Amino acid sequence: MRPNAVEAMLPYLADEFANPSGAHRMARRSRCAVDDAREVVADALGFGPHGVVFTSGGTEADNLAVRGVTEATGTVALCPATEHHAVLHPVAASGGRTVAVDSDGVVDLDHLAAQLDAGAGAPVGLVSVMLVNNESGVVADLDAVADVVRERAPDALLHTDAVQGVNWTDVAAATAPADLVSLSGHKFGGPKGVGVLAMRDSTRIAAQMLGGGQEAERRSGTHNTAGIVAFGSALAELSATREGDVARIAVERDRLADGLTGRIEGCRLSVDPKRLATVRPGAGGNGAGGNGAGGNGAGAGRAAGLCQLLIEGIETEALLVLLDRCDVMASAAASCASGAMEPSHVLAAMGCDRATAAGSLRLSLGWCTQPWEVDRALEAIPECVSRLR
């Protein structure tokens, strides 16, 4: 966690422990702290404060978006096949469908249009496209997606899981076309167990957590005041430092990727870096697009903090064991997939065969990553691959 976020939350774990839903003086102080954090989130995302709903994390926020909209409107949802399971599973539960992506994980806009045009069954009420893929690091062009949705299904809402994207994009600009946006605090130096679903003021959802009616009847449950305060503190710090952090981390990520692909035979990135340029906040555009993918997803790009490699002749599970012993913490696919070593559904959707996907390695960098850590990875990973071969 960011030190400032830890410091901000400590009083609300001790003396300021009152329930923000109460009416007495201490409760009012807690409620003011929650509302101050709500204002920070609203400013960072470009939403109204009333549209900010605090949740237990990104998974709950995604479920509230997908299930909340489809249940409120009697519709189904669409999403790319590369989405996080927190979106894929509720989309499937709604009776929805997936949209194809190309070999770099860019949304196939023609297939999206065809799925929106499909007349069988309930109408499409929501399209969910994550801002930054949590495995490949591909940054979606939400403007292009929104254009298709508005043309083919003008009543449908657009949701984006920006849990990974908040670090690496000008998130307010990048998510401007979206009606609903999900965040999770632990991805940017806040605490685990706190998330947000932000929605435009006119958005109607069916609550999934019923009880005391908190969050304007949209998400019942006693507020995690300490976590919410820390979430706001971390997001405020991120907003102030993002541009410089992205510039620094992009250099380290490229040094890591170039070093590993150069030193390990049969090692390549899962996406084409010549096609998908690194997104740099403040560089103009909508805050998300790279140098263009041509045709479908012409504004797509690549996030600075993610490096997904495909390594021939190894199995990632064995590699991760060796790397852990070398103090290099990596993963095969999504690190929130309960530790299960299953083939990456993201790589499968991108057309990667099972044998190649078995050698996938995901390395994540963040605001606290230091050059010596990259040096250590550049030393340890080739050595461990060589031992396995």
Score class of each variant (00 low, 15 high):
residue 1 M to T: 07
residue 2 R to M: 11
residue 3 P to M: 08
residue 3 P to H: 02
residue 6 V to R: 12
residue 7 E to A: 15
residue 9 M to R: 15
residue 16 E to F: 06
residue 23 A to P: 14
residue 32 C to L: 15
residue 40 V to K: 08
residue 43 D to N: 12
residue 49 P to N: 05
residue 52 V to S: 03
residue 60 E to M: 12
residue 60 E to W: 06
residue 62 D to M: 00
residue 64 L to K: 03
residue 66 V to K: 03
residue 68 G to E: 01
residue 68 G to I: 02
residue 75 T to E: 04
residue 76 V to A: 03
residue 77 A to K: 04
residue 80 P to K: 04
residue 83 E to C: 01
residue 88 L to E: 00
residue 93 A to H: 13
residue 97 R to E: 02
residue 104 D to F: 00
residue 105 G to C: 11
residue 106 V to D: 07
residue 108 D to N: 05
residue 108 D to R: 09
residue 115 Q to K: 14
residue 117 D to H: 11
residue 120 A to C: 12
residue 122 A to N: 11
residue 125 G to F: 06
residue 125 G to R: 03
residue 130 M to S: 03
residue 135 E to H: 10
residue 136 S to K: 01
residue 139 V to P: 00
residue 142 L to M: 02
residue 142 L to E: 04
residue 146 A to Q: 15
residue 151 E to Q: 13
residue 155 D to T: 14
residue 155 D to W: 02
residue 158 L to Y: 07
residue 161 D to P: 00
residue 164 Q to T: 13
residue 165 G to F: 02
residue 166 V to I: 13
residue 168 W to Q: 05
residue 168 W to L: 08
residue 170 D to E: 12
residue 180 L to E: 06
residue 184 S to P: 05
residue 185 G to Q: 04
residue 185 G to Y: 01
residue 197 L to D: 01
residue 199 M to R: 14
residue 201 D to C: 07
residue 202 S to M: 07
residue 203 T to H: 03
residue 206 A to V: 08
residue 209 M to N: 11
residue 221 G to T: 10
residue 224 N to R: 12
residue 228 I to E: 01
residue 231 F to P: 11
residue 232 G to I: 10
residue 240 A to G: 05
residue 245 D to F: 05
residue 246 V to M: 00
residue 256 L to T: 10
residue 262 G to Q: 08
residue 262 G to Y: 06
residue 266 G to W: 00
residue 268 R to M: 04
residue 274 K to R: 15
residue 282 G to C: 12
residue 283 A to E: 03
residue 286 N to M: 07
residue 288 A to Q: 05
residue 288 A to L: 09
residue 290 G to L: 04
residue 291 N to H: 13
residue 291 N to A: 13
residue 291 N to M: 09
residue 291 N to P: 09
residue 292 G to R: 04
residue 298 A to K: 09
residue 303 A to Q: 07
residue 305 G to P: 11
residue 312 E to N: 09
residue 313 G to R: 04
residue 318 A to V: 12
residue 332 A to N: 09
residue 338 S to F: 14
residue 341 M to Q: 07
residue 348 A to F: 02
residue 356 T to W: 01
residue 356 T to S: 08
residue 358 A to G: 13
residue 358 A to V: 08
residue 359 G to P: 01
residue 360 S to I: 14
residue 364 S to H: 08
residue 365 L to S: 05
residue 368 C to P: 11
residue 369 T to L: 04
residue 372 W to T: 14
residue 382 P to A: 08
residue 382 P to L: 11
